[in-house]
Nucleic acid binder design. Sequence first.
DNA 1: GCCCAGGGGGCTC
DNA 2: GAGCCCCATGGG
Length: 224
Amino acid sequence: MTLGDRLLDIYDLMLRRYGVQNWWPGETRFEMMVGAVLTQAAAWTNVEKAISNLIAADALSAHAIRSIEQEELAQLVYPSGYYNSKARKLKALADYLGCRFGDDLDAMQREDTDALRDELLGVYGIGEETADDILLYALGKPSFVVDNYTRRIFYRLGLAPEKGSYSAYRSSFMDSLPTDQELFGEYHALIVRHGKEVCKKRPACQGCCLLEVCPTGKALIEAG
DNA sequence: GCCCAGGGGGCTC
DNA sequence: GAGCCCCATGGG
């Protein structure tokens, strides 16, 4: 059984358990990009408040974010925490979109995925996870998102790559799974769902409870 | 009061 | 390139 087969089995288990997650929340591609920045080390409920503030202030566009004072922007995104940092990050994102694409997200979407990823990583405030969130969910490109749940769960399942780095995990998934944007998007969403719902409530398990081989001997999800 | 949430930058070594 | 600290609110 290849790694790809095992990863697909785990995907099927989670999909049957939780159903389709339909990530990412957001009405527009730009809103999804903003959400990707605001959700950094923040609970999504707080991100929603910040986005609501931006909408109420008519500031949920790249142009508006460039125009508004950074201090005012910081007050709008206050509920999502790290508000000074995040205001600066949103400015950097809006500047990038304006300078590079003239705010034309269709043009952005036509760019090569790997090249675009390198560019995004050069923007202040966009690290690997945020870049992959943007590529995958806002732009619909097949770029696998790795987060702490992913590492915790797959390490515990004995499916971690030798090196525990972000890129090692990402390559492990992308080299083993079919290149499919919908699969990648649903897979990451299911990992987060499982992490929140099960691993957090059962710290001893840490995600391994997906499988019969769970070292705790208390598998929560039966095959089928 | 304590812990953590859908991280990233900057610095040190 | 690994390890640490900083950024900060809100919910359990």
